[in-house]
Amino acid sequence: MGLASAGSMPYQESKEEFLTTKLSHLIDLLRKQSINWSRKNSLWPMPFATACCGIELMATGASRYDIARFGAEVMRFTPRQCDLMICAGRVAIKTMPVLQRIYMQMAEPKWVISMGACASTGGVFDTYAVVQGVDQFLPVDVYVPGCPPRPETLLEGVMAIQRLVDNEGMINSKDRERGLGLVVQPTVQVEVEKGAGK
């Protein structure tokens, strides 16, 4: 910028133009912030609940854990209205095409939570009929561990999605990496006492 002395500068903005640019930046920023803010607090989950995790998903939606605190209580069973797919439970080979079709029908931007050990890795069902992890065939954003995960863990997964939305919200899923590999982990670090193993 040092070279850009007064005479050689091709374009000099006037005071008014300067203000408009700054203003539009500000508006952009506000718009992005507010859209992201509202988007992250109104995730509409599409519960693809197949097995045990589905019951914990119901428990998360029910009164004690109350997913409504995070604005994600509006479970819609049509994929066209949803932006967050929660894939809960093991996915059999017969179900995998159904899951893929539902994912394709969801509108951008969309996120996917793989809930539980079975959806993420196949879990205990290392058999001929179970897909060993939906992330082999679908882009997954957040993995929630557990068999089944406790409702708190699922809520942490939803919050991880919220952080994602906050950071990059306007970017739709096509521009993201395939599989973010984000795994929900306990935030509390347990400190091991010195000499505990002796």
């Binding site: 059999a92 179900t95 205990v124 058999t127």
Partner: peptide
Amino acid sequence: GYLHSGFEKL
């Protein structure tokens, strides 16, 4: 059969 996971084989 959309949730067939092979319990009996397992």
